[in-house]
Computed example of a mutant assay.
Amino acid sequence: MTTPALDQPTRVLARTFATRLRDVRQDFVDRDEAVDLLALAVLCREHVLLVGPPGTAKSSLLERFRRTLDARCFSYLLTRFTEPAELFGPIDIRRLRTEGVYQVNTAGMLPEADIALLDEVFQGSSAILNTLLTLINERTFHNGTRTVDASLITLLGASNDIPDDPVLAAFSDRFLLRCRLGYVPDDDIEDVLTLGWRGEQELINPAAAGAGGPAGRTRVGFGLADLGRLQRAVADIDLTAVRGPFARIVRSLRAEGVVFSDRRAVKAQKTFAARALLAGRAAAELVDLAPLVHLWTSPRDEQTIRRIVADAGVPVDRPGRTVRSFGELRIDLAELAGQRARVTGAEEFRELLRRGQRLVLELRRDHPDARDLLANVQRHQRETIAIYRERFAEEELVDV
């Protein structure tokens, strides 16, 4: 049975967006799964929460993802002492004096943002969280006596933990997707040090940052008009093939005491459709049920959900990493070959070689039987090294 394909314009848009995501992944170690969840949240107009101890790159990951979008953004770190005016705007003194109207000036503040990044999101006061609840749930903001439509697409939240407080339950539940981040495995420490040092070099001397670093790869943000087209395309994905398996999973979850509300089950379908869209398919498949492992409400249920979803035959990756398809890896190789014909600087060539090496490692780890594709990547690496040595004979290949 042939899998239905998207129309050409939508497929090109989805591939372009996927390329932006790949660039974000390459700036972090062991954060592929979190990047994919951020993308699903934006495509579904839902909200996502990153949970993990300090120093696990939650804030920097959210900020880096935000830069992939050409959108109005509001970012803030909440504390117990944060005032509502710091998020929603100060009182409009002029109108209060001249007209006797109580309103806040929302220019440049959260009510006018397309994307909101809130660090330590549960630290806000009751006044802040109640206003946020209306914003993220109804996309409206009560400004004095007026109710204003908000343009908010997604709230990206970060927290060290999810508080076990019934008062915060309603607000916490509005984050459909959750991802736990831990410190990277010991085997990946060298990669963390390498990528981290490049980031520090850019902070120390931005003007001298190599073209292969994160700043050098920054592109024009993915526009809101194109994002809107992809969001509308999510609604056109056929979910017929996965509705039965999904219903059986929901029954199994409830049979084991996992809290999985009807509202959460209905909204979950958007994530399946968005995942299929990013893969270039017009119909969802069993593999597209994988986001279910991030729809837990209580952290205690996460492992149970993972087990039940895996028992249903859905490929479930280990936390922190996404196994990409052959098609995605072939696209990566084609893009490397295309970029090689355009790059001119030594550092740009070294970055291509680093990306090629990561592709080799990914193929060996996730697709050990893909010998032909692996051979093609290795041949591309040899050719790139030969071109590098021919053009830059005096420069050594270091840090590759």
Score class of each variant (00 low, 15 high):
residue 2 T to Q: 11
residue 2 T to P: 14
residue 6 L to F: 06
residue 7 D to L: 06
residue 7 D to N: 14
residue 9 P to D: 08
residue 10 T to A: 04
residue 11 R to F: 11
residue 13 L to P: 02
residue 14 A to P: 00
residue 14 A to D: 00
residue 17 F to W: 13
residue 18 A to M: 11
residue 19 T to R: 11
residue 22 R to T: 08
residue 26 Q to R: 14
residue 32 D to A: 08
residue 32 D to P: 03
residue 33 E to L: 08
residue 36 D to T: 12
residue 50 L to R: 00
residue 51 V to N: 05
residue 54 P to A: 13
residue 56 T to Y: 03
residue 57 A to S: 15
residue 61 L to M: 14
residue 68 T to Q: 12
residue 68 T to H: 03
residue 70 D to Q: 14
residue 72 R to G: 12
residue 77 L to Y: 03
residue 78 L to I: 06
residue 82 T to G: 04
residue 82 T to S: 15
residue 84 P to F: 09
residue 86 E to G: 06
residue 86 E to A: 11
residue 88 F to D: 00
residue 93 I to S: 05
residue 94 R to A: 12
residue 103 Q to V: 09
residue 103 Q to C: 11
residue 110 L to G: 04
residue 111 P to C: 07
residue 120 E to S: 09
residue 124 G to C: 09
residue 126 S to Q: 13
residue 132 L to H: 04
residue 137 N to I: 06
residue 138 E to H: 10
residue 139 R to E: 03
residue 139 R to Q: 10
residue 142 H to D: 10
residue 143 N to A: 07
residue 146 R to M: 08
residue 150 A to I: 00
residue 152 L to Q: 02
residue 161 D to N: 09
residue 163 P to E: 04
residue 165 D to F: 03
residue 170 A to R: 09
residue 178 R to F: 03
residue 179 C to E: 06
residue 186 D to R: 10
residue 186 D to H: 14
residue 187 D to A: 14
residue 189 I to S: 09
residue 195 L to T: 04
residue 196 G to S: 04
residue 196 G to E: 05
residue 197 W to R: 15
residue 198 R to H: 15
residue 199 G to T: 05
residue 200 E to A: 15
residue 201 Q to G: 11
residue 202 E to T: 15
residue 202 E to N: 12
residue 205 N to L: 11
residue 206 P to Q: 13
residue 207 A to L: 14
residue 209 A to D: 10
residue 211 A to L: 14
residue 217 R to P: 05
residue 219 R to L: 15
residue 220 V to H: 15
residue 222 F to I: 01
residue 224 L to R: 11
residue 233 A to I: 04
residue 234 V to Q: 01
residue 236 D to V: 04
residue 236 D to S: 10
residue 240 T to N: 08
residue 241 A to L: 05
residue 245 P to S: 08
residue 252 S to P: 01
residue 252 S to D: 10
residue 258 V to W: 00
residue 260 F to G: 03
residue 260 F to Q: 01
residue 262 D to Q: 08
residue 263 R to H: 08
residue 266 V to P: 01
residue 267 K to S: 07
residue 272 F to G: 00
residue 281 R to V: 10
residue 282 A to S: 12
residue 287 V to G: 06
residue 288 D to L: 08
residue 290 A to L: 02
residue 293 V to I: 15
residue 295 L to W: 03
residue 299 P to N: 09
residue 301 D to V: 05
residue 302 E to L: 07
residue 306 R to A: 07
residue 312 A to M: 05
residue 314 V to L: 12
residue 315 P to C: 10
residue 316 V to Q: 00
residue 316 V to D: 02
residue 320 G to A: 07
residue 329 L to S: 06
residue 335 E to Y: 09
residue 336 L to N: 06
residue 337 A to F: 02
residue 340 R to L: 11
residue 346 A to S: 07
residue 348 E to V: 10
residue 353 L to D: 02
residue 355 R to E: 13
residue 359 L to T: 00
residue 362 E to W: 03
residue 366 D to S: 11
residue 367 H to E: 12
residue 368 P to K: 07
residue 369 D to I: 04
residue 370 A to N: 01
residue 373 L to Q: 05
residue 375 A to Y: 07
residue 378 Q to L: 15
residue 378 Q to S: 07
residue 385 I to F: 01
residue 387 I to H: 00
residue 387 I to W: 00
residue 389 R to T: 00
residue 390 E to H: 13
residue 398 V to E: 12
residue 398 V to P: 01
residue 399 D to G: 05
